[in-house]
């Protein structure tokens, strides 16, 4: 089964870029373009040095697209696999793993490019950086539940997909990716904290920047992870059997 979703995911990535000259490297190119552009235009507002702001944006943005990519992919995880769901009795989670593995590959590719650039700019890993590893595990854990649940709901209600896309588009502005939360005054810093993504991004980015993530952030993330899994298990138990009829 592991072999199956790995092959499915890899095949999908290759197909997507099959007819472009740069191929899979488009993932890296478009990511670098975003980071360079944002760092150039926004660094003046952040109060951080340019070098450290570039690292801040690169790490935050990579985490952000991995997380929100799971929302968008999640809405299509079953509808896009209907060719298989209606042909073979595979466990539906295979399609979730396939989708998740693909977005993780993209994330890994971006990190593989970002880390050498960071090293070249003087960044060095520390013991604190290791805290990013449990953060990644938590990302994956959340992504499985979120994709399964959104996949089920949007197979039945197509509107959910459109709603999620609209919200995701807004999230880039209200999450501290392009701006730094620490520089904000009381109310706005509080407002930023109301956004769960702030905490999800922070538990991964802070340790890599040599800062200890706040306990609040880890707490929020842990509670939300439990909530998401609870909801997803409930949804799966109630509606999984209806899925092929909805597609």
């Amino acid at each position: 089964m592991v072999e199956l979703w790995r092959t499915f995911a890899w095949d999908e990535i290759k197909q997507r870029y099959r007819r472009s000259v740069l191929g899979v490297s488009w993932i890296v190119v478009s990511f670098l373009m975003f980071v360079a552009g944002v760092s150039f235009f926004f660094s003046g507002f952040s109060g951080r040095e340019l070098d450290s702001f570039i690292v801040y944006v690169a790490l935050g943005y990579a985490a952000f697209i991995f997380i929100t990519g799971n929302f968008i992919d999640g809405c299509q995880v079953f509808t896009s696999s209907h060719v298989w769901i209606k042909a073979m009795p595979l466990p539906y989670s295979v399609h979730v793993y396939r989708s998740l593995f693909r977005s993780f590959l993209i994330f890994a590719l971006q990190m593989a490019v970002v880390v050498p650039i960071m090293m070249w700019m003087g960044w060095r890993p520390s013991f604190l950086s290791l805290l990013a590893v449990p953060a990644l595990l938590v990302y994956v854990l959340n992504a499985v539940a979120v994709q399964y649940m959104l996949g089920l709901v949007s197979a039945r209600f197509e509107d959910v997909g459109h709603l999620v896309t609209s919200i995701t588009r807004l999230l880039i502005f209200v999450t501290p990716i392009l701006w730094v939360r620490e520089g904000l005054d009381g109310t706005r810093a509080f407002a930023a904290d109301l956004n769960p993504l702030t905490h999800y991004v922070e538990i991964f980015r802070s340790p890599l920047l040599g800062e200890m993530p706040r306990t609040t952030s880890w707490l929020v993330v842990c509670i939300l992870t439990l909530a998401v899994w609870g909801a997803a298990t409930g949804f799966a138990a109630a509606f999984r059997r209806r899925l092929p009829y909805w597609l």
Binding site: V83, K86, A87
Partner: peptide, 12 residues
């Protein structure tokens, strides 16, 4: 099972 020949294949 072979119920629909367009299913169970990635056409690309």
């Amino acid at each position: 099972s072979l119920v629909n020949i367009n299913l169970g294949m990635r056409s690309e």
